[in-house]
Nucleic acid binder design. Structure first.
Lengths: 315, 315
DNA sequence: TAGTCCTACGTTACCGGTAACTCAACTCCG
DNA sequence: CGGAGTTGAGTTACCGGTAACGTAGGACTA
């Protein structure tokens, strides 16, 4: 018991005893069994479950990095969950992770199975839903309004005089955030009297090459599209490469817009039209708020990190 | 006790009892406490600690994805550790993770602090060191020979007639694997009578933009360099963009070579000279071998996944 | 029919910490 | 100098599972 007190620096022991205990620790190469600690006092582990749709989508690696950096600096560990965009997978993962008594959870997306919601509520664990803003989260929420960002992009493109619009995305869509963007975009186009003449949902990750062949597909099925909004910047860059290869002039023949301001954008010879979203910041804020709740402090329930439309030279 | 047996499907109970137990489980919304299980029978958790240098380096997100996919399909969970390329950070992380009784560990890199090695050995936990091949691993190893890949690139570039060589990398270097490549490259250049006239180590992540400004720095300090080998493809693409912006012809004025065959390469209008390494495969193999050891089976101690030099049009 | 085995279920102790309590010795004060 | 408070250390019970063992009663066998 005295050794336990010394190791927890809880006080109630003399310096002489402390030295003796530490000497034994050293001699035995003693490593505490944290499992026993959690078990004993019905505490939680220092694990934080973090579910993201997948790592193939560059956007989420930035979010994850923001989360992990913050968690580590407060002595917590990230337990990864890749849900592959399937709510059923998420539910299974939540159940597993909860059985390990995590300190908290961070979930990407606001949609969950009813049973998952029930598990989360009854577990009473601090929880942050990230990515898509949710004004009534289960517990807390950090994100941005994807619908609005799509709507703003639609209005911006309309203001540039475009009439026939296209969209290319993938099924790798975090909790339908990209679909929200598409919906906002479609609404703006409709409100402004334009026509969303073609939209494509590829069964692929939203990377460079899907942007490349997605553009090819879209243009071959509807050559009259004047501007294409992509799920993210990497896809848009793939599109730009396709157009260059095909001698299609940008923005002369076609306009290209991306989303997310990914690293590739920084080395292009022109400014890509895109929406800037601070992915790292979402991760950091989510982890910060979670840590506040974990340590019993108050945290803001809903955090809107916002977005910024970047008018570029590709439209 | 009977309930415990039913839930573990261990046998030794009647169908009638099983139904009764399951009904109670349902009624109470009972979730087993896995912490108690681990504690009780001195078993291990289903966590696998995975340390990678950082997520900003795209290469490792692929490795991580390979690992996690495999682990999840065998009911294990990934506990992330970003060591930020610091052995001291790794040691701290190892100590923390070990105290949670993980089923196994996967570490990026072969260099560890002496204390870390001692902790790992005495914990007697299945362990895979990945990335750089190590013929005498602590336990197991999956990777490729980075020195050789650099050497081969050096020889290949020599065979193309280059005399003055450059290198641009970053300090974000997984366990000095990139440094091994540089050493191999330098050796080849020396052996072949060329001159490694300038090498740069940027304090940044090995991404597009560092490739861009790294090229600028290198060329301004030594304009006579004829070919540059980059830490990875993303940096090389940044370099290509820099050269296009400056109207420097590739491969006419300068040769560019990357490493790793990253996704961006698939949409470029020319084939980038690079080394192909199957990152996803490294992750999968590492997880596979680890799971074998965890379940008590034999696993290959050293796995060389190899590499393949891709002669492109940029040299 | 007695002895043996098997099945289904129950009992006990234990894993390694810690909360809550007890207690001796020492300090401090009016 | 006696009673109250403080300090450092020890004792006990408990967290929620499971290993190991115990046992009643039915089936099977010699």
């Amino acid at each position: 018991m005295t050794a336990s007190r010394v190791l927890r620096e809880e006080g109630g022991y003399s310096e002489k005893t402390r030295v003796k205990v530490m000497a034994e620790v050293e001699r035995l190469g003693y490593l505490p069994n944290r499992i026993a600690t959690v078990f004993a006092s019905d505490k939680r582990t220092t694990f934080v479950g973090v579910s993201i749709p997948d790592l193939g989508n560059e956007v989420f690696t930035h979010v994850l990095e923001g989360i992990d950096r913050k968690l580590v600096s407060f002595n917590h560990q990230t337990v990864l969950g890749m849900t592959q965009h399937a709510l059923a997978e998420e539910e299974t993962w939540i159940e597993t992770v909860l059985s390990w008594k995590p300190a908290g959870l961070i979930l990407t997306g606001r949609a969950h199975t009813p049973r998952a919601v029930q598990l989360l509520q009854s577990s009473n664990i601090p929880l942050v839903e990230i990515w898509d803003l949710n004004s009534s989260p289960i517990d807390m929420c950090v994100g941005l309004n994807h619908f609005d960002s799509g709507y703003d992009m639609g209005r911006f493109l309309l203001s540039k005089g475009y009439k026939r619009f296209g969209y290319v995305g993938t099924s790798h869509d975090a909790a339908n955030a990209a679909t929200s963007r598409l919906n906002g975009y479609a609404k703006a186009v409709e409100d402004g009297g334009g026509k969303l003449s073609k939209q494509l949902c590829l069964n692929d990750i939203p990377g460079f090459y899907p942007g490349f062949y997605g553009t090819e597909q879209l243009l071959s099925s509807d050559p009259n599209v004047e501007v294409i909004f992509f799920q993210n910047d990497n896809m848009a860059v793939g599109a730009v490469q396709f157009c260059e290869a095909q001698k299609i002039s940008i923005p002369g023949d076609i306009g290209i817009a991306g989303w997310g301001e990914l690293p590739i954008a920084s080395v292009l010879p022109y400014r890509l039209t895109t929406v800037q979203a601070n992915h790292l910041r979402i991760g950091q804020l989510a982890a910060e708020n979670l840590l506040l709740k974990i340590s019993g402090d108050d945290a803001q329930d809903v955090c809107d990190v916002g977005f910024r439309l970047v008018p570029g030279e590709t439209v």
